[in-house]
């Protein structure tokens, strides 16, 4: 049993600031972190491995410093780590990324299941799982929790909208792990020290992955941000409770949010 978990390095969205012009993000104070949803995908995969054996391999696409999320994954218990990294990925859109990851998964070989976070906390595209399933022609189970593996089948509870459906599929399969599926473990201190001292990450570039020029060509172009205007401060009401209630009712009626007359 081999599970590959895709993990992504991103700027901590909690520490990103929107510029005054609302046209760009100031990331100077933001730290690079592992996508929190990918931590949960990894935790779920480690959990499955503990139940049925096998190995967990982590895979990322990014700049050389993205090895950080792979080394942290090794500290948490992953068995092997691969980084797809190439200057030619610098403009990669979701399509190019999916081509590269699919090529890496084929090259790793003998993969039974692919786990990803439900979506990435920065772009929140949530399309990588579906794209990879389509490219690999594997079945796709979205937003899964309580993942079990038995007799060549994978099952779990799929949380979409307001329903949870129990799904079962033959392997191989692509799974995105529900963003509240589990609480990722802390790695052991010695595992952290060893993972970062040893630095066992295998790096593949686009040639290692036999990617064609077509696969490397992005289909979408990033033109810039246009962020929603900041919310303005509301109106503050003063006076006694009765006065404030009357004012509030009048305001709501003025905006046609309440029926009747003042």
């Amino acid at each position: 049993m081999r599970i590959v978990v895709c993990v992504k390095q991103l700027y901590d969205p909690k520490m990103a600031r929107v510029s005054q012009s609302r046209q760009s993000l100031d990331l100077r104070a933001a730290e690079l972190i592992m996508n929190p949803m990918d931590l949960q995908a990894l935790e779920e995969a480690l959990h499955v491995r503990e139940a049925v054996g096998g190995e967990v391999t982590v895979l990322s696409l990014g700049k050389p410093e993205a090895d950080d999320v792979l080394l942290w994954s090794l500290a948490m218990g992953a068995d092997a780590a691969y980084l797809a990294s190439d200057e030619r990925f610098s403009e990669a859109d979701a399509g190019v990324t999916a081509h590269a990851l699919a090529a890496a998964i084929r090259r790793i070989g003998d993969v039974d299941a692919l786990f990803l976070g439900e979506y990435a906390a920065d772009s929140a595209g949530g399309q990588m799982g579906a794209r990879l399933a389509a490219m690999l022609r594997w079945s796709f189970l979205p937003a899964l929790a309580q993942v079990f593996l038995t007799d060549g089948h994978l099952s779990g509870l799929s949380y979409l909208e307001t329903t949870a459906r129990r799904l079962l599929t033959p392997l191989p399969a692509v799974v995105t792990v529900y963003h509240r599926a589990n609480k990722p473990r802390f790695p052991h201190g010695a595992a952290v020290i060893n993972a970062y001292r040893e630095g066992k990450v295998i790096v593949w570039d686009a040639d290692d992955l036999d990617m064609t020029l077509e696969e490397l060509a992005p289909q979408t172009l990033f033109r810039g941000y246009s962020l929603l205007p900041e919310r303005e401060l509301g109106t503050r009401l003063d006076g006694s409770a009765a006065e404030m209630a009357t004012d509030l009712a009048a305001m709501l009626q003025g905006r046609r949010l309440l029926g009747g007359e003042a």
Binding site: L71, A75, F186, P187, I193, Y196
Partner: peptide, 14 residues
């Protein structure tokens, strides 16, 4: 060293 920074990250999160 990098492993010490990451060890700090572990302890800080804990």
């Amino acid at each position: 060293p990098r492993e010490m920074e990451k060890f700090r990250k572990l302890v800080r999160e804990f």
